[in-house]
């Protein structure tokens, strides 16, 4: 098991370097001058331009630039925003908010997704199953931002059950509605995946054997169907953490949540390249770590792969 963890960890290293390199390359090395973009295309004093170039190491060869970027990323020396704030401090304020939001969304997906998926899978073809299936299709088809507006309007404004926007401190209770919106599409995918997995495993030979042993229906479902069916669902949830970070850009915008997504979106619109690169680098780290956790969970659920 230790060996397995170590090997998986090794495999994630190239992913981390590759993804950060990709982002860095896209932002700094593609045609179009990032410095010119910084100033919004207006002409700039040569001295200022040179200073900016030095600040972002653009006077160095590409590989040196990338190396310095990585070093800065790891040491959290991320430079400054246009308004002169430390990027690391800004991220430090926004990160806990988004982390809370994502954890809530993920929990929401996992709990309700698995619950509805299991029941639908066990009652394939029945009314409950069809209803859940149609509902999940509709949720997938309606874009998150539309859902966000609709829920904000109905629950937040018309019914007044929740605050339509989130205040600066972003407490847990105000994040419920945004988390719901953020997790809804993935929730639909989790339901579909769980349902398919359950109904496939129900026909497995070992399930029939378990029944033949004299086990009760409940035990067969819980011990022999559920655990095996959760394996693909866990993989999906882990990979989805990255997707949630992407979705946070939209959701946080609608509900005005002061999180990473909002920060990133504003930075992109304002052309604050250092902030963009720093935030995306952090997201890649989160994604890579989440994948490691998924791998370990996977190995715990399925003993076969520990020895591969």
């Amino acid at each position: 098991m230790v060996m397995f963890t170590f090997r998986r960890f090794l495999q994630l290293i190239p992913v981390f370097f590759g993804a950060t390199l990709l982002v860095y390359f896209l932002v700094f090395a593609t045609p179009g001058d990032p410095i010119a973009a910084l100033s919004g295309g207006k002409p700039m004093a040569p001295a200022v331009e040179a200073a900016l170039r030095a600040q972002y190491n653009l006077d160095q060869p590409f590989w040196v630039q990338y190396g310095l970027y990585l070093k800065n990323l790891v040491t959290l020396n991320l430079g400054q925003t246009f308004s002169g704030q430390e990027v690391s401090a800004v991220i430090g304020r926004a990160y806990p908010v988004t982390a809370r939001l994502a954890v809530m969304a993920l929990a929401f997906e996992a709990i309700f997704g698995v619950f509805f998926g299991v029941i639908a899978g066990l009652r394939k073809g029945k009314l409950f199953d069809s209803t859940v299936l149609v509902a999940s299709l509709v949720v997938i088809a309606v874009p998150t931002f539309v859902l966000g507006f609709v829920l904000q309007l109905v629950i937040g404004v018309q019914l007044g059950w929740a605050k339509p926007t989130v205040s600066g401190t972003a407490p847990w209770n105000q994040l419920i509605l945004p988390a719901l919106v953020l997790g809804l599409v993935s929730l639909a995918y989790v339901i579909r995946l769980t349902r398919a997995s359950i109904s496939e495993n129900m026909n497995a030979d070992y399930v029939r054997t378990a029944t033949a042993k004299g086990l009760s229906r409940r035990r067969v479902v819980v011990v022999h169907i559920l655990r095996n069916s959760l394996i693909p669902v866990v993989t999906f949830l882990g990979a989805d953490l990255g997707g949630l970070m992407g979705g946070a850009i939209v959701t946080e915008g609608i509900f005005n949540v002061p999180g990473i997504g909002n920060l990133l979106y504003k930075a992109i619109l304002n052309g604050e390249t250092p902030t963009v690169v720093a935030v995306v680098g952090m997201l890649v780290i989160v994604f890579v770590l989440a994948n490691l956790v998924v791998d370990l969970l996977y190995a715990w659920l399925d003993p076969r792969i520990r020895y591969v």
């Binding site: 030979d205 070992y206 054997t209 029944t211 033949a212 042993k213 004299g214 086990l215 659920l301």
Partner: peptide, 30 residues
């Protein structure tokens, strides 16, 4: 009746044991 009065030995040994549980567990639960 199953298990205690009527037992079964299935056909394909590869697919009839649940891959995620230890052999002992699968005997014990019977």
């Amino acid at each position: 009746l199953r298990g205690s009065s009527i037992g079964m030995v299935p056909q394909d040994p590869m697919s009839n044991l649940n891959p995620v549980w230890k052999i002992g567990f699968q005997v014990k639960e019977t």
